[in-house]
Design a protein around this nucleic acid. Structure first.
Lengths: 144, 144
DNA sequence: ATAATATCATACAAATTCACTAGGAAAATA
DNA sequence: TATTTTCCTAGTGAATTTGTATGATATTAT
């Protein structure tokens, strides 16, 4: 019942981009050094974000990545679901493919639904803008 | 971000025991057949519940398992944490051992805390008695 | 044109976890 | 003593996680 590094890193990458969104593109190397994440692994994760259109890339010198939209337009759920897959606590809630044949008689399903709703309530409410605000409230070197 | 079969099965085992709590012990074989779970795997899971004192066992013919307490005395969280380990979405919240050195500047931690609280709110509120009630509401063969 | 700088695309791999299976020991009952 | 049950531990195939490694491709600067 853990969020993997992929999802956690994706969130930190997006937050890092939001924090350093000053017109210029940000290189993978910069992010990886600031965040203490292997740059090659980071490349793979940011590539997912890129293919989904969450970030925009430019190649070559002075290249790098930047956010495609404003921070408030990304919910945490968007970013986590993209990188982690479904956030449901059990597979049988995701789609028809994964439903088991005890669906109708299964009381635990009601519980899983409640947990799922509670998680959704959080991840679909908060956005990158909220993370940015929290980050800034923590005080330190958030300018440039 | 999934609950494993261990936790899900544990919950269903406890619910099965609650549903068939009529004085006599319930054999592993019965539960495994009703629930469609491999009996050898079920043995391992129920053994965890036994060691924690959640169920009581008797050996030999007419032996089996029964609940140690009343259904309302087991929260879902107790059962899931016992079998799954911590339900926190990230390890850095669990204890001091797993804390990372970005603890103070990490805005995402605030988010993980919110998700953690939301999950706790559910799993520490509902009990086996609630599951039992939901099961009975579903209509069918809940007697014996 | 060439060299340098960046992203982009794959392939590989070590470690861990998951979900069981297998075999037998120990205890209780008939 | 035979049968029935739990109890204990080891093994195992498959998938997932968390990266590394290598090189191709595009862009810019000289």
């Amino acid at each position: 019942m853990k969020i993997s590094t992929k999802g956690r890193y994706a969130l930190r990458i997006m937050l890092d981009l939001a924090m350093h969104d000053i017109g210029e593109s940000v290189r993978v190397k910069e992010i990886s050094e600031r965040q203490g994440i292997s740059d090659k692994y980071l490349e793979q994760i940011i590539s997912i974000l890129n293919k989904a259109g969450y970030v925009r890339s430019t190649r070559g010198p002075q290249g790098g990545y930047r956010l495609a939209r404003k921070p408030e337009e990304y919910t945490v759920g968007m970013i986590l679901r993209l990188t982690e897959g479904s956030l449901s606590p059990v597979a049988c809630m995701e789609d028809d493919m994964n439903q088991c044949d005890r669906q109708d008689e299964c009381a635990t399903l009601i519980l899983w639904k409640k947990i799922d709703d509670a998680i959704k309530q959080i991840v679909d409410t908060y956005t990158l803008a909220d993370l940015l605000e929290w980050q800034n409230q923590r005080g330190n070197d958030y300018i440039i």
